[in-house]
Simulated assay, not measured.
Amino acid sequence: MSTMIKRSTNPLADLMGWLETESAAMRSFGSAPYIKVEDFVEEGNYVVRAELPGVDPNHDIQIDVTGDVMTIHGERREEEHDRNRSELRYGSFERSLPLPRGAKAEDIRATYVKGVLEVRVPYAGEEQKATRVAIEHDGS
């Protein structure tokens, strides 16, 4: 069963998310490394999983939250080898994702197991209630 997430109404965060998603196919043809992710809601957490094989999570990955955007930065370091072929991508990479409304940045937890980074973001997922505002007027 899936759960709908009410995303932020921050236009910049929405644009960044759209650009990340729509340009994924184009990036795969370029030289910039691209982080593949999946996201879902589980037990009151917004969960993001990122494929990051071949990196040291203690030295090569950094997660920052600014406002309602989470950014995963990292670097895959190239080792010197005599080789005939290399299809692996090395260098810096970055991926920014909009966080759902009510995300609690101070309680974010991240783990790295078998090349997959998992970030759990607790959030208050309840729907916001609509409120009607009374309009004051002078009676005329």
Score class of each variant (00 low, 15 high):
residue 4 M to Q: 12
residue 4 M to C: 05
residue 5 I to A: 12
residue 6 K to S: 09
residue 6 K to H: 09
residue 6 K to D: 13
residue 7 R to C: 10
residue 7 R to M: 15
residue 8 S to T: 15
residue 10 N to L: 11
residue 10 N to M: 08
residue 11 P to D: 06
residue 12 L to R: 08
residue 14 D to Q: 14
residue 15 L to D: 06
residue 16 M to V: 14
residue 17 G to H: 06
residue 18 W to N: 09
residue 18 W to L: 12
residue 18 W to F: 12
residue 19 L to P: 00
residue 21 T to A: 08
residue 21 T to W: 02
residue 22 E to W: 08
residue 22 E to N: 12
residue 23 S to W: 13
residue 24 A to G: 10
residue 25 A to M: 13
residue 26 M to N: 08
residue 27 R to H: 15
residue 27 R to P: 06
residue 27 R to Q: 15
residue 27 R to L: 15
residue 27 R to D: 15
residue 27 R to K: 15
residue 27 R to S: 14
residue 27 R to F: 15
residue 28 S to L: 14
residue 29 F to Q: 09
residue 29 F to V: 04
residue 31 S to Q: 14
residue 32 A to L: 14
residue 34 Y to D: 15
residue 34 Y to T: 13
residue 34 Y to K: 10
residue 34 Y to V: 11
residue 34 Y to H: 13
residue 36 K to G: 09
residue 37 V to C: 06
residue 39 D to L: 02
residue 39 D to Y: 05
residue 39 D to N: 12
residue 40 F to V: 02
residue 41 V to M: 03
residue 41 V to L: 05
residue 41 V to Q: 08
residue 43 E to P: 03
residue 44 G to C: 04
residue 44 G to D: 03
residue 45 N to M: 03
residue 48 V to H: 02
residue 50 A to M: 01
residue 51 E to R: 09
residue 53 P to I: 06
residue 53 P to G: 05
residue 55 V to K: 06
residue 56 D to A: 12
residue 56 D to V: 11
residue 56 D to G: 08
residue 57 P to F: 10
residue 60 D to R: 03
residue 60 D to F: 00
residue 61 I to F: 06
residue 61 I to V: 15
residue 61 I to E: 04
residue 62 Q to K: 13
residue 62 Q to S: 10
residue 63 I to W: 02
residue 65 V to N: 01
residue 66 T to P: 00
residue 69 V to C: 05
residue 69 V to W: 07
residue 70 M to A: 01
residue 70 M to L: 09
residue 72 I to P: 02
residue 72 I to E: 03
residue 74 G to V: 06
residue 74 G to R: 05
residue 76 R to V: 07
residue 77 R to C: 01
residue 77 R to Q: 08
residue 77 R to A: 07
residue 80 E to S: 10
residue 80 E to Y: 06
residue 82 D to W: 11
residue 82 D to I: 12
residue 83 R to W: 10
residue 83 R to D: 14
residue 85 R to Q: 13
residue 85 R to A: 11
residue 86 S to H: 09
residue 86 S to V: 12
residue 87 E to L: 13
residue 88 L to E: 15
residue 90 Y to P: 04
residue 91 G to L: 05
residue 91 G to V: 04
residue 93 F to Q: 04
residue 94 E to A: 14
residue 96 S to V: 07
residue 97 L to E: 00
residue 97 L to D: 01
residue 98 P to C: 03
residue 98 P to A: 03
residue 99 L to P: 01
residue 100 P to D: 01
residue 101 R to D: 15
residue 102 G to P: 06
residue 103 A to E: 02
residue 104 K to W: 02
residue 104 K to P: 01
residue 105 A to C: 02
residue 107 D to A: 10
residue 110 A to V: 00
residue 110 A to T: 07
residue 111 T to A: 11
residue 113 V to Q: 09
residue 113 V to D: 12
residue 114 K to W: 07
residue 114 K to D: 15
residue 115 G to E: 05
residue 116 V to P: 01
residue 117 L to F: 03
residue 119 V to R: 01
residue 119 V to L: 03
residue 120 R to K: 13
residue 120 R to P: 01
residue 121 V to Y: 00
residue 121 V to M: 00
residue 122 P to L: 02
residue 123 Y to M: 02
residue 125 G to N: 04
residue 125 G to M: 01
residue 129 K to I: 07
residue 130 A to Y: 04
residue 131 T to Y: 10
residue 131 T to R: 12
residue 135 I to T: 11
residue 136 E to M: 08
residue 137 H to A: 05
residue 138 D to M: 07
residue 138 D to R: 08
residue 140 S to L: 09
residue 140 S to F: 07
residue 140 S to D: 12
